[in-house]
């Protein structure tokens, strides 16, 4: 992935990027809730009708939950987790979306990813792209700085302070 260069001059607008990140997290949260709700209904209500599709729904729900949590947590490991889960979602929506279009018989029952997430206003198709852009612009914290409270002074010789979505934006 190409590292997007953020020259120091842009640091003035960094809180804004961070702020948009919050909206991203909120949308992920809603999607996680939606996917969890749907898979809960499918598995409790009619699991025997299409076990594979419903297990896929449940897997998608879990991945959305993990991605939502990973986006809210600071640190390098969570950043990697966020990359992994968001990439998985991208792959999932592309593969399942394409398959459901080419051979509707494969996925007779809706999943979040059927028809590229049409049942969810195509949000599952768009949101991983936005997530990847956001992750690439917000490199993770170094392992050392995980537990230190970020100061408001601009570092002079180190890399720009990470902009992982921790609390305390205002």
């Amino acid at each position: 992935m190409i590292e997007v260069l953020r020259p120091r001059a842009v640091s003035r607008s960094r809180p804004r990027v961070r702020g948009i990140g919050r909206v991203l997290i909120a949308v992920y949260g809603v999607l996680a809730l939606a996917a969890t709700g749907r898979s809960f209904v499918q598995i409790v209500g009619k699991f025997d009708q299409a076990p594979l599709a419903y297990l896929l729904s449940a897997l998608a729900a879990v991945v959305y939950i993990v991605a939502t949590i990973a986006l809210t947590q600071p640190g390098r490991i969570w950043h990697t987790v966020a990359w992994a889960t968001i990439s998985f979602e991208m792959l999932g929506v592309l593969v399942v979306g394409t398959l459901s279009l080419l051979d509707p018989g494969l996925f007779p029952h809706d999943t979040v990813w059927s028809m590229f997430g049409r049942g969810y206003l195509f949000i599952p198709l768009v949101i991983p792209v936005l997530g990847m852009i956001w992750l690439s612009r917000n490199p993770p914290e170094g392992p050392e700085s995980n537990h230190t409270e970020p100061t408001h002074t601009e570092p002079t010789h180190t890399a720009p302070t990470p902009t992982a979505p921790t609390h305390g934006d205002a």
Binding site: R22, H167, D169, A170
Partner: peptide, 8 residues
Amino acid sequence: LIERTRWS
């Protein structure tokens, strides 16, 4: 309530 920014 916790985060009083426009993004909220």
